[in-house]
Design a protein around this nucleic acid. Structure first.
Lengths: 293, 293
DNA sequence: ACCACCTATCCGATATTGTTATAGATATTA
DNA sequence: TAATATCTATAACAATATCGGATAGGTGGT
């Protein structure tokens, strides 16, 4: 392999322009350069790329194959260049987004499509983890940005920007004693076991009402256990919605529960990391996605 | 973009070897070349790739990104080179296989996996078509090789190499009058409409027994019409097998039908096309796949 | 302090690449 | 058929880049 990119470019442009002279004009070099470049390339590859028996060169069968490969090499080079110029402007070219598994992922499908459209060269990595992993990943630089729920203040290294509120649902199994009450009172709730979300790492935890309660670190485990009659729980509305429909869970009124039942969903990022263009764009996108509709 | 492949190679090898000197030894060039190559590359990209404050150079954050891109450019180049050397040896680098839709495709899954293993640089295209399309595609160079059934002699331009025999099944709908007989006689069969396969282009056709018959150009249309009680038909065993199980079709004995009920499945290729290595390999593979087990 | 090994830079010889000019070939047009 | 325009290939020569070797300066380990 001694051929070089100039030869490849000469070849590709010649194919696309249909003649060596036209290619030379297009690139802005002397015609002889195209001619010799392609001749050398052919010498190096070991076969002819063009059939020159006619006035205009026409691709040989092998040339047609090489054209495909040459174009793909050049487009890889272009990708390298464009990513390099992003880096030169101190812009990010790869980004890891960590999303709480309890966040409704459907809401982000169009988001990711739009990211791909807006930043075609961006290498995006998506991590999906339990509640407690998200902030941890962001804080320890395994993720650039995270989307998660929270109740309590974050580590001081992290910025939390709220982008949406979710109502919490009070759920029980249809066979649970509480299921007979449409609007259970606090006293009634306190008689039964409550399953409470609790962040394994930070210790951050949800609203605790009943004196008998278990802490669990995943909303999905919680709703599964609730459906088996282990107790009652407060979970984000969408987490349990599928199970209402299938009859595994019943939703009860939360009117008797004092205090805010809203959970914030938001974006976390490291405080020390600059708000690069991509991050800024993502944030304003998510903000308008959830807050203006 | 004025950087070149030598610079990228110097960069990549330097990363992998951990030092410029080691990279120079590895490539077999003077150390100064690596040093200047990388310096020029950095100058061109607009940022440093290595942090040289320590004894050994260590990748910067941007360098880490560029390393990924550089490696992918070089591997594309390698692909181009290896495909070029195939072409120089007059070997095929891309191949189109056309497969009759009536051929059981499951039989070819491991085949394609093995092709990919044996010829990693091969660009494979698979066409799936009705009976009559296959030979046509191969004859008109839209496919290099075809897998199909046949009864009658082929065009003289085509080689047919038999690789397997399939039994034909006699099928009727469970509600069809013939379904009451386990072993229908020829006389009985002649009383009802037969659905016969017929190649739209070549006119090649299957065994015709009943004086009242329709010609249809797809086995799947045939078995679908048979299941609706339109008539009876002879089709390759596997085409109808799913429908036996689901009760849509009944198979009857073919003992009373004289003549061969075997269909040949085989490989077609143009007679004028040389048996390149890939084709030879494919043929012997398919041969042993069907004939030695 | 010494040694081994590293990177950056300078230097002269060499090779490559680039331009211009020209010759031969092939379509188009009058 | 002859003139014209346009194409490719190649020679001649200038500009530039690349080559290996030598050297200077730095760093880490003994």
């Amino acid at each position: 392999m001694q051929w070089n990119l100039d030869q490849l470019q000469a070849f590709v442009v010649a194919v696309e322009q249909g003649s060596f002279s036209a290619a030379a004009r297009k690139i802005g070099k002397a015609q002889s350069r195209i001619s010799t470049a392609i001749a050398n390339l052919e010498l190096d590859l070991g076969f002819d790329l063009f059939d020159r028996s006619n006035r205009l060169p026409v691709l040989t069968e092998q040339g047609r194959e090489m054209y495909i490969d040459a174009r793909s090499v050049l487009s890889q080079c272009q990708r390298l260049s464009s990513r390099a110029s992003m880096l030169a402007k101190d812009e990010a070219v790869s980004l890891t987004v960590a999303i709480d598994e309890a966040v409704p992922i459907e809401a982000f499908e169009t988001f990711f499509v739009d990211v791909a459209k807006r930043f075609p060269e961006l290498t995006l990595t998506i991590l999906n983890g339990a509640q407690q992993d998200i902030a941890h990943w962001v804080e320890h630089k395994q993720a650039d940005i995270g989307v998660m729920f929270h109740f309590a203040p974050m580590s001081t290294n992290l910025d939390f920007i709220s982008i949406a509120n979710f109502r919490q649902s009070l759920i029980v199994s249809p066979t649970h004693p509480l299921a007979q009450y449409k609007q259970p009172s606090l006293t009634q709730l306190k008689q039964y076991r409550q399953l409470v979300i609790r962040n394994r790492l930070s210790g951050e935890q949800g609203i605790t009402i009943s004196p008998t309660h278990w802490f669990i670190d995943s909303y999905y485990y919680i709703s599964s256990m609730v459906s088996h009659g282990v107790g009652w729980a407060l979970v984000p509305e969408h987490v349990a919605r599928n199970d209402w429909y299938s009859g595994l869970l019943t939703e009860l009124s939360t009117r008797q529960i004092s205090g805010s039942l809203n959970m914030e969903m938001g974006v976390v990022k490291r405080r020390d990391k600059g708000m690069k263009q991509v991050l800024a764009w993502m944030h304003s996108y998510l903000d308008s996605m959830f807050n203006t509709v």
